[in-house]
Design a protein around this nucleic acid. Sequence first.
DNA 1: CCAAATGATTATGT
DNA 2: ACATAATCATTTGG
Length: 330
Amino acid sequence: MEDQARMMLGHIGLTGLSHEDVGDPDNIRKHHNLGQPQQDIGEILQQIMVITDESLDEAQARKHALNCHRMKPALFSVLCEIKERTALSIRGAQEEDGPDPQIMRLDNMLLAEGVAGPERGGASAAAAVVAAAAGGSPAEANIEHSEYKEKLAQIRRMYHAELEKYQQACNEFTDHVMNLLREQSRTRPISPKEIERMVGIIHRKFSTIQMQLKQSTCEAVMILRSRFLDARRKRRNFSKQAAEILNTYFYSHLANPYPSEEAKEDLARKCSITVSQVANWFGNKRIRYKRNVAKLQEEANRYAVKTAVDAASVSSQASQANSPATPNSG
DNA sequence: CCAAATGATTATGT
DNA sequence: ACATAATCATTTGG
């Protein structure tokens, strides 16, 4: 225990001067070269452990003693001087980071999904958006909706609980560090700016943790959404009549199967589906019709070529010198 | 149960 | 903004 005080002071060069080292310009080198670093580290660790074992009162007393040491003002000014000289290299390394675009994206998404923000309003707004995006009838949209809402609320609760926890931990930690720094500022020079910077560093660390939370929450919401709200998962075929109407239009406008907005609205009304469903249908129909035609055409061409080649080989047996190949048209 | 059909979404190009 | 093409997820018919 005695060693500790000596060691602490020794670190700042007060006790170390009291013996044979005084006036020896090489003492630093001597100490560093002769002592095995491993052993030094072991010793220091040991001492740190002992310190942490001390009671608060003991520590306070020791600190007080240190503060009242007669050499303390001198030491302080020395430290200030050293700091002046070294501060230049430290300064200018920081200062960046406005609002992180990544975290803003996540925030926006969580807000849109109703996970962040006000309790009911956000959720119902998101539900409305989803219902509007999906083509299905409003009654059908509610079939599995309660389960979805429940799961979303669960995610929401978890998210807020975690966020709260992080916030609290961050505040506690910041307080702790600030107290520590304030305390230490009595024995070594620490400017308010440095404390501020420290707080900034802590906040950045915690905000990366928060970002991870937000990220995983976003993922959970996306999975939930795709599980419950992806319209592909509850697709219903259109009615026979609707298919009839759509096909009639398509084949009667085969030369230009691109219904105008107006025509789409008309068809949507007649088929009791939405305009975007009509658009989807025509998109699918066009590509699939084309594909079928192309496929059948290719098939036809294959057989046409085959028969042509057969015919050519038969005829070439009769006469070798022949006119060039017949190009086949599409 | 399987393959074809089908409605919706996504990626890409204009 | 819209069209196409590819792809996904489901329904349907054999």
